[in-house]
Design a protein around this nucleic acid. Structure first.
Lengths: 104, 104
DNA sequence: ACATCATATCGTAATACCGCGATATGTCAA
DNA sequence: TTGACATATCGCGGTATTACGATATGATGT
């Protein structure tokens, strides 16, 4: 896990906000209920469009931001039909917390 | 404390390294002993020149990096004679750790 | 006052990031 | 297979970051 890359990902206010919104997807993305033909339990995963709307950014920017957060390991993604669901990688976030709270 | 600004400061490998070196100044900057006319107890503060040498960067870059780390609160500086001594702001680092370990 | 040393600031070219619209890819429904 | 939809990628202009040398500021000793 490249800490430098991770910190860079978090140095953008919108990306930081997205990560925090995903702590409580049900509260922050209420419209995220049951897309057709998709299993109901997505473990709190949220699709790109919902994040795009909530953050008020363009679709391409949303996609790119989520990619940045995923490539440094903070998010996990899963495709179901036409949607890509993103959720927090709690393990990576815990590792980051251990680093900041200990080695840093 | 602006977390976004703090993460940006930490997104540079050299700056991150400097902050970690300053955890143990005696080990990492052994030459930092007693400048003339300066009180001996600097609470582990290290001057710009030592950091410049250790990191292998130019003087202006060292000064600027330390300024970035100080402006986001991670470092504290104190001038004694011609030297400016930098040391970690453990309180700010603890606050960052609380944020990453809790709110993030 | 002067020279010297440590640090800060300025100006710079190269590079990276930002956020977007346009377009490409992939998926489903008919 | 065609159309509609969700997401990914491309290309762009604007802006910020990077790291440096040159220069300015500030402190010390003579």
């Amino acid at each position: 896990m490249d800490m430098t890359e991770t910190f860079k990902a978090l140095s953008n206010p919108t990306r930081l906000q997205i990560l925090m919104w995903l702590k409580d997807p049900e509260a922050n993305f209420p419209e995220q209920g049951g897309h057709p033909g998709v299993p109901d339990d997505l473990k709190g995963g949220v699709c790109v469009g919902s994040i795009r709307d909530k953050a008020g950014i363009s679709q391409s920017t949303a996609s790119q931001y989520l990619d940045v957060l995923q490539r440094c390991g903070l998010l996990l993604s899963e495709r179901h039909g036409k949607w890509t669901y993103f959720r927090r990688n709690e393990e990576a976030i815990a590792e980051l917390a251990r680093f900041v709270g200990g080695e840093l």
